[in-house]
Amino acid sequence: EAAPRTTRAQSLDVLSSQANIAGYKAVLIAADVYPRFMPMLMTAAGTVKAARVLILGAGVAGLQAIATAKRLGAVIEASDVRPAVKEQIESLGAKFLDVPYETQEEREAAEGVGGYARPMPPSWLARQSALVHERAKQADIVITTALIPGRPAPTLISADTVQAMKPGSVLVDLAAGRGPEGEGGVRGGNCPLTEADKVVTKHGVTLVGYTNLASMVAADASSLYARNLLDFLKLIVTKEGALNIDLADDIVAATLLARDGAVTRKA
Rank of each mutant, 00 (worst) to 15 (best):
G182E: 07
R36S: 14
S215W: 13
I55L: 10
K25G: 05
D13R: 09
T201C: 10
I251K: 00
L92C: 07
L54W: 03
I29E: 15
G179P: 02
T201N: 09
R5F: 15
I141A: 02
G185V: 08
L233A: 09
M216C: 14
L28P: 10
G209R: 11
A139R: 07
R71V: 06
V85S: 06
V200S: 11
Q128D: 03
G204T: 03
D173P: 07
D220L: 08
V186N: 06
I148P: 02
V113I: 12
A65I: 04
R5G: 07
T201D: 07
I251F: 00
T144R: 00
A69Y: 07
A67L: 11
G150F: 01
P83F: 13
L235E: 11
I66D: 06
R259M: 09
L15H: 10
K25R: 15
A51F: 01
R36L: 13
G177N: 04
G188D: 09
Q128K: 12
V205G: 09
S169I: 03
D160Y: 06
I141N: 04
G23W: 02
D231V: 07
T103V: 11
S158G: 03
P149Q: 02
K198E: 15
K202Y: 04
L12R: 10
A262S: 12
V263R: 10
A109P: 06
R178S: 02
R135G: 00
G182D: 06
L193D: 11
T255A: 05
K95H: 14
G185C: 11
K166W: 07
P100C: 09
T211W: 12
S11I: 15
M40P: 04
G168K: 06
A196M: 11
T155H: 00
L147D: 00
I89H: 01
L247H: 06
A31D: 13
K198G: 08
R52K: 14
P83G: 11
E240A: 13
A258Y: 13
P152H: 01
V142E: 04
T161H: 04
L224G: 00
D32P: 12
G168R: 09
R36Y: 14
F232V: 07
